[in-house]
């Protein structure tokens, strides 16, 4: 009996196989490249919702942090309040804008129009 490698060489299917034709190679290559393209595109777009979500979370966190550091405007929303200081006998008008800016007007008691 012949050695295994001789038997294999004689029976090698590549002895009669011309290999892949140019057309087969082109079709296969196109399929592979398209798969790579689809995968890359899917990967790129897959990250976009994540990025949008991350930006939203950051914006909300920044808003909360800023809000905590600003004085509350709940008690003085565009409502003028007079708060005269008895000691100095000066009259003040304080009000805050919705944005949180507080405006204080101090009336000069010596002013007589």
């Amino acid at each position: 009996m012949k050695a295994v490698n001789d038997l294999l060489r004689e029976a090698d299917p590549l002895n009669e196989d011309p290999g892949l034709s140019d057309v087969e190679v082109r079709v296969m290559r196109r399929a592979v490249v398209e798969a790579a393209n689809e995968r890359q595109a899917a990967g790129f777009f897959a990250y976009q919702p994540l990025a949008v979500g991350a930006v939203l979370v950051l914006m909300i966190a920044a808003g909360i942090t800023t809000g905590r550091h600003l004085p509350s405007s709940r008690n003085s929303v565009s409502r003028p309040s007079s708060a005269p200081t008895v000691a100095e006998e000066r009259r003040q008008l304080q009000f805050a804008t919705p944005g949180g800016t507080r405006i204080i007007w101090t009336f000069d008691p010596e002013f007589h129009p």
């Binding site: 892949l20 296969m28 290559r29 592979v32 490249v33 790579a36 393209n37 890359q40 595109a41 990967g43």
Partner: peptide
């Protein structure tokens, strides 16, 4: 980088498909 990855896969196919087919056929 997407274009690079796709080009690399194309080059990978061009370089290795004949040898891989020979092995696959056997």
């Amino acid at each position: 980088s997407q274009e690079d990855a796709v080009a690399r896969i194309g080059a990978l196919f061009d370089t290795h498909h004949p040898r891989l087919y020979r092995l696959a056929r056997r």
